[in-house]
Amino acid sequence: MDDLTLVREFRADAPLGAPSAVRDAVLAATTPRARRFGPLPTALAAAAAVAVGAVGVLALQAGPAASPSAAAVLGRAATAVAADQVPRPRDDQWVFETVYGGATDGGPFAMVPGEGWTRFDGTQYADAPSDHPRALHVQHLQDDPSVPSPAEWYDAAARLPHEPAALLAALRAGGLADVDGGTEAVRDFEAVVEALGQPVLPATARADLFDALATVPGVTIDADAEPDLLGDPVLAVTLDRAPDASGLLSRRELLLDPDTYAYRGVRVTALEGGRIGGAKGLDVTAGQTWYEDTVADAVVVDRPGQRH
C-alpha cells in the first residue's frame, strides 16, 4: 500500500454529515435582517431623499474653506487619478457593480452583496433573482431624465470645466446630481460625491472633481476613519455638522481607497438624535450610522453576467 493510500485511509471512518445546528447557525448569520438593495421602504426612502440634501432649519454656517490637509490630500488624489486612462465604453457595454450596505433601520448593515449590470447607455438593467442565482433577469428601462445613465454621466463629466469654482457652478446648474436644497457647501459636497460615485468617468474629470472638493468649506480628511463594510481601511473625506431637512446634524463621509483614491462608498452618521425626514421619517440616535455602502467592484464588461 503506498503512502498516499495510507493517508487517504487514515481516519476514513469519519462519518459524513454536518450537524443541522451548524446549518442553522450559518443561515442565521448570513440571512439579511431586511432587504438592503431593493427599493427602500417608502418612509425611509422619503427620509433619505430629504435628509441628504434638503434645506435644514439649522443652516450650516459658512466656515473656512477645506482644511489645508484636505486640500493637500485631495490634490494628491487628483494627481493620482489623472494618470488613469478611462476610455469611453461602447454604448452596448455594461457596468457591473457589487455594492454592500444601504440604509438601515438601526440594525447592523447586512453583508449582502448587491450585484447588478447597467448597460452603459442606460437602456437595460440586469441582475439575478435570489431564487435562481445563476439566472439573469434583464429588464428594459424607461428613459428617466432624473436618473442619468452611465453614458450621460461620462459625457457630461467630460464637458465639466476644469476650474473648481466653475466646475461646482456647472454641477449646480447641470441637473445631474439629485441634491436639491441644503446649504451651498452641503449641495456642493453631495454633488461632487455623487459624481465621484459614478463607476466610469474620464480621468481628468475625476481629478477635477477632487480639486473642486478641496474648495468646499468645511471639508476635512480623516485618515483614521472606521473601516468600510468589508473591514478594509479607508480614507474619509468628511463634511461634518451638515444639517438635514429636519435640522439634524450629520457627518457625511466620502470613503476612498487610501492607496489609489478609488471611490469606495459613502457613510452618513447622525450627530444628534431625532427624526430625519418629517413625520414618516426615520428615528435616529446620536452616533448612529444610518446609511453606508461599500462598492466592492465596479468594472466595464461586454455583457451582463460577466464580472471581469
Binding site: 438593495f37 431593493g38 427599493p39 426612502a45 441628504v52 440604509a103 449582502v112 447588478g116 439575478a128 459613502v266
Partner: peptide
C-alpha cells in the same frame, strides 16, 4: 446613494 438602483439579492 440613499436611493440606490434595484440590486439583486
Amino acid at each position: 446613494t440613499p436611493n440606490p438602483p434595484p440590486r439583486s439579492e
